[in-house]
Amino acid sequence: MRNIFLFLKNRSKFIIFVALQVIALWILFKYNKFHEAAYLGVAGEITGRINQQYNKVEYYFQLKQTNDALVRENLELRQQLAQNFEAPDTSFTNFTDTVNFLKDNEQRKYRYRSAKVLNNTYTLTDNYLTIHIGTAQGVQKDMGVIGADGVVGTIVNAGKNFSVVMSLLHHQSKLSARHLRSGETGSVYWEGESPFELTMTNVQKSVEVKVGDTIVTSQYASYRYPQGIMIGTVIEVEENNSRNFHTLKLRPSTHFNRLEWVTVVENLQLEEQLAIEESTRKN
């Protein structure tokens, strides 16, 4: 017995080293796997508050870009108004059916909530954003997040007033995308190397893809994002004769280094969709 204690005493440095390493690695890999950790709930509130203070200062330096992005987005929405369309042929009418908007929840699929970005990384291997909205405002885990210029990411951890968003620049982020010109779908992910490069695969070789083509979210990603939200533009079509699918390099349309406001997308029909999918799987 005494020898055991002596041994422990002599090796205490090493034992503590190993113990701390095990704790650190355990939270690291557990967190990566399940995307949640009890500790982040508490830490999130604290770091969220510090981030909020910092953001108060930093926000002013970005006002110009934020303004520009909002003007662009407004213009885009204005283009869709019904009064923009007028044809000499009176049998042609174009109107917006307001009934669908009025009977709010019956036909509405997406509801949007805007949120301020408090913290944001884009140079690390796994990047996250902290946004100032949480379960108290109706935000849940797994909701999609978009910005003025395109897709931003997915909510992985929703606290009371702050939420953590897994950005597209994360090695576990993957989403279904569509080549806008041809309508062909594929999947977009990040290889973890450059924040200016996403990778898209599974686009059939029969489709002609050119540099500069637009990639948007596909209908298969619509449980999280409305379809047709921009993801990026093609910057490189990789030559690879051994495969039947294109490997494309995309430049993300979202400027991750100057995000100020994002929009959280809630899919109101998700529950129904999941329920029917689940019951099919059981049969």
Binding site: L20, I23, Y31, A37, L40, G44, I46, N119, D126
Partner: peptide
């Protein structure tokens, strides 16, 4: 780590 959302990553390197 709590700022970068990578719990344990920098802690492991620091302890080493």
């Amino acid at each position: 780590d709590s700022f970068t959302n990578t719990p344990g990553l920098h802690a492991a390197a620091c302890v080493l």
